[in-house]
């Protein structure tokens, strides 16, 4: 299917069409925090922002998710209702790419029915990034401001209109359903979109050459850099909770009256409690080991298993870190270390 054009004054009707067909998720401000929330057809779309504070992973991998329910002292297990069809609108290419990276993990060996169930029923409509943030480094880890990986449709803001490019079958179907409001895109439109993508890529000011890092990390296991880079770490969960590729979780039981549920929630490898054994022994006793694990997981273990770096360069962990622990800087030190 060819690319089309959506005039900006028809954005509202596009949103309304999407919201009628499926549950629409869009970046919404909760207080001062931008995150993807369910919206109805009447929402006023606002897609002008650098990126959301909480990544789009929260739609397919919510912070808390019921695995099943039961009644206390009984043995029947009740499954949660099936997943609804969803559309995500306005996803930045880095967040979408993160989803396709995390897909590897959740479909590895054993399929994860909750994640994959949501993922299959979700159509991701992305918006090419035109104003990369100061800490964006997506082009260093295999992405880019107009990367299409993980997206079903890519929008590009041409000023007066959006260029709409369906990328997958799911995306095509979605566009066909909204067919009438689109105009034909001219070759000029395609060219100017291409130009905008290149301009955005040129605006990315931070970079790191990641080649060789996965191979080098195992040799730096006992290196002094881990102590060095983790000294200031507070051991909080900001970098992992806000990371679009971090996927580790905890499973807990909760009881309310006579009803109970088993649910899973985001967990962070930066918490001491994460690996703590019941005996009191902790295989990762300090922030040094935890930081080392975090970097290794993203840039070494994940690469060994799935042949892709589990980092999309969205820069959230850098911008949100309260003590300026900077993953680019850590990688730089890894490269320089002997």
């Amino acid at each position: 299917m060819d690319s089309m054009k959506l005039s900006k004054d028809k954005l509202n009707s596009f949103v309304a069409i999407l919201a009628e067909q499926k549950q629409l998720y869009m970046p919404q401000a909760e207080g001062e925090t931008l995150k993807y929330s369910p919206v109805n057809a009447k929402v006023q779309p606002d897609l002008v922002f650098s990126n959301t504070a909480v990544p789009a992973k929260s739609v397919v991998f919510p912070q808390v998710e019921t695995l099943f329910r039961y009644e206390v002292e009984k043995t029947d297990i009740k499954m949660p209702a099936g997943e609804e069809e969803r559309v995500l609108l306005g996803v930045r290419p880095c967040d979408a790419r993160a989803m396709s990276i995390v897909d590897n993990l959740f479909s590895w060996d054993v399929d994860d029915p909750y994640y994959l169930g949501k993922r299959e029923k979700t159509i991701v409509v992305g918006l090419a990034c035109q104003k990369p943030g100061v800490n964006c480094f997506c082009s260093s880890v295999g992405g880019g401001p107009a990367s299409t990986e993980g997206l079903d449709v890519l929008l590009t803001d041409l000023g007066e209109s959006f260029l709409v490019k369906p990328l997958t079958e799911k995306g095509e179907k979605l566009c066909q359903a909204a067919g009438e409001i689109f105009e034909e895109a001219s070759s000029d439109d395609l060219n100017s979109a291409e130009k905008l993508h290149q301009e955005a890529a040129a605006l990315i000011s931070r970079s790191i050459e990641t080649g060789g890092i996965p191979e080098k990390l195992p040799g730096l296991w006992e290196s002094g850099i881990w102590k060095e880079v983790s000294n200031a770490c507070l051991g909080c969960g900001i970098c992992t909770f806000l990371c679009p590729t971090c996927h580790c979780f905890d499973i807990q039981d909760e009881i309310e009256g006579f009803e109970g549920r088993r649910c899973r929630m985001w967990d962070s490898c930066m918490f001491g409690e994460y690996t703590l054994h019941t005996s009191g022994h902790n295989p990762r006793p300090t922030r040094r080991e935890r930081t080392r694990n975090r970097i290794n997981h993203k840039y070494n273990y994940f690469v060994q298993k799935f042949d892709v770096i589990a980092c999309v360069g969205c820069g959230r962990c850098i911008s949100s870190c309260p003590v300026n622990i900077d993953i680019i800087e850590i990688l730089q030190q890894v490269k320089e270390a002997q």
């Binding site: 060996d109 054993v110 994860d112 996927h247 979780f249 905890d250 499973i251 290794n296 997981h297 298993k305």
Partner: peptide
């Protein structure tokens, strides 16, 4: 043996190295 939650390589906490 390590702390485990899922048992099939998803929850991420039981790793030793890779």
């Amino acid at each position: 043996e390590n702390r485990m939650k899922c048992g099939f390589g998803k929850c991420g906490r039981c790793n030793v190295g890779s």
